[in-house]
Design a binder for these strands. Sequence first.
DNA 1: GCCAACGTTGGC
DNA 2: GCCAACGTTGGC
Length: 220
Amino acid sequence: MDQNVSHGVEPVNSMKPPNSPREFAVECARCYKWRYIPSKEKYEEIREHILEWPFYCETTREWHSDKKCDDPPDVTEDESGLKWAIDAPSIPQPPPGWERLIKFRTKRNTRIADVYYNSPANQQLRSKIEIEKYLEQHPEDATQSAKLDQFSFQIPRPLEEDYVVNGEWYKDRDILSINELKWKRKRSKRKRRDEWGTIVLFLKEIQASNEQAVAMTSVS
DNA sequence: GCCAACGTTGGC
DNA sequence: GCCAACGTTGGC
């Protein structure tokens, strides 16, 4: 039981870039309702072990949220103002002193996001090769838990209802012509949940002033 | 001049 | 066809 987990607490230097995930949620393996996770650290812990230890509503007892499957979901997939992206399971928690950052790109016609690690020496690293070099140069940081296989640069995927048209994300209902599609979901061919074998995801807030967000919500 | 965000590509 | 790796560049 971790009593220190409290909602909205940021790491010491809260220089978080605006395009990093703002909220974290996990789906209950029994009732399929989404439950907010109170901190990035708790989320990373759950994500690492989600395959061995499925998440159930009762787990929210850990942070005194005490949700049951009978309770309404914390958030639903059609809630406006939220962008959803599904994370891969079994990503190791960052070693002590390290931070794993996910940054969404604003133009999403190529990759939707990048993963960076901030080292104990506050260097930003962007590939396994850079991690390897860093660990060679900083043997003091190459601890038991800070080994190469404890790092993952796997980026999340957009939720299946999202499309990219001309470099911007659109909801299904906003698309005028199928020929405009540059990036298309693959749900019809592979069930994403099966593919990822997990229920973990996080979601991102859209700024209220964002024109794109306005355009998306104004279509009825 | 720097560097975060972006676009490209080689290797699988 | 996909994506890890990284070179490029626009905005500061």
